[in-house]
Design a protein around this nucleic acid. Structure first.
Lengths: 215, 215
DNA sequence: CAACTCAGCTTACAACTGTTCGCTAATTTA
DNA sequence: TAAATTAGCGAACAGTTGTAAGCTGAGTTG
């Protein structure tokens, strides 16, 4: 095995070890360099051959988590295109993701309100990508003003993330119930945004061209 | 000064010191017993005369924060009764609170998704109080089914807390903008819930079967 | 093949942690 | 007033942490 290959391999094992340490009761700021090294099967000092800091590792983890999220969105879109309501499909996909990658989602959730400003910013960027892509999608599907679509999409993402947090906490048997609740809540937002939009256009001109078939 | 009085006083100074340590970049799990003792002006070992653990201190802090929140709600209600829209008044009150008691809100926000299951539960209870009281209020003001009111209130609380997190992060000049956005989002939820509710009752009256066509 | 690079190691250190033990001095109780 | 209680303290403990210094040995390069 070439030297570079070997290095990449241990680097990956560090990352994997770190993710595995982010279980129920740990955040990035609560895992130590030595712990990560121990879990990765290397000497503490060898860590520095790969990352300058624990912070550098942390940002790498956030990036990887964001990547996973974006892949999730693509997956959700392809499912939607092959039939099924937007809301139902998106929520189902999201919950599946959370359950399959609990630690990845936990990382985002925890560092979103965590103790490191750098991490908070990094997570925020990922979430904003999420919001923007959803807003574009909404503008495209429903004939709605971009400002309103943006508000709608932000609401939806916040509700979904919040429900995701609840899902992590809840027992598996409650998950479908949580899913049902958040779907209903998303429909409120959707209906409300549509109603608001229509009301606006009525004020502007009486021709209610704006349709909302909410699919 | 009596002995008990003195003891309560240093106990309070420990609590205050702990809150003051919860600034931008610290969570409960990241402040040490010795730090708190140092900030409170006592010897590390004296801490044990007041709390068994740092955990016990932590739960006390969460309780105090919850208390502050409930006081906030009362304040908001009295403001509403003396005129002003429900949403506008509530959001304004909330944002004021956050700015005046940044560390208190930060505590709730951070420990809500934090690393201690006990803290998470404690914060969750406080939030649920919040949701239930709002739901009761909604049932009373709007003529709406309790199940729907509950969904609506949960949505609203989640959106407000989420916006609160953003407020903490944002520069003061952006705060009014954040307030405006979240007010609009809350109106979406309100409009949506009302529309949904109306639709339900229409269906009941016609066919007696509750269907779900918001897909 | 010889020189070089460098991932990973061992050792070491100072700083900090939570917690135990026993003491003091002042308040409370009898 | 004498005895008991107890808030607070200082010293000391074993454990953990991040990181600096220097070595080894295997892969790379000329």
């Amino acid at each position: 095995m070439s030297r570079q290959e070997q290095k990449q391999k241990t680097r990956q094992s560090i990352i994997l070890a770190a993710f595995s340490l982010l279980d129920d009761n740990r955040s990035l700021s609560a895992i130590s360099l030595r712990e990560v090294a121990r879990a990765a099967g290397i000497a503490p000092t060898s860590f520095y051959r790969h990352f300058k800091d624990m912070d550098e590792l942390g940002l790498t983890l956030v990036d990887e988590a964001g990547l996973a999220l974006r892949q999730l969105m693509r997956q959700a879109r392809s499912r939607i295109d092959s039939g099924g309501g937007v809301i139902d499909t998106s929520v189902d996909t999201f919950i599946e993701f959370i359950c399959a990658n609990a630690n990845v989602f936990r990382l985002l959730l925890r560092e979103h309100t965590g103790t490191s400003a750098a991490y908070r910013m990094a997570v925020l960027r990922e979430i904003q990508h999420f919001v923007e892509e959803l807003a574009d999608y909404i503008v495209e599907r429903q004939a709605i003003d971009h400002g309103i679509a943006s508000l709608q999409s932000e609401s939806m993402v916040r509700l979904v993330f919040s429900a995701g947090a609840e899902t992590l906490e809840a027992e598996p048997s409650m998950r479908s119930e949580i899913g049902r609740r958040v779907k209903a809540q998303l429909r409120f937002v959707q209906l409300g945004a549509a109603a608001y939009s229509e009301r606006m256009s009525h004020h502007k001109n009486r021709s209610g061209v704006t349709r909302n078939e909410a699919r």
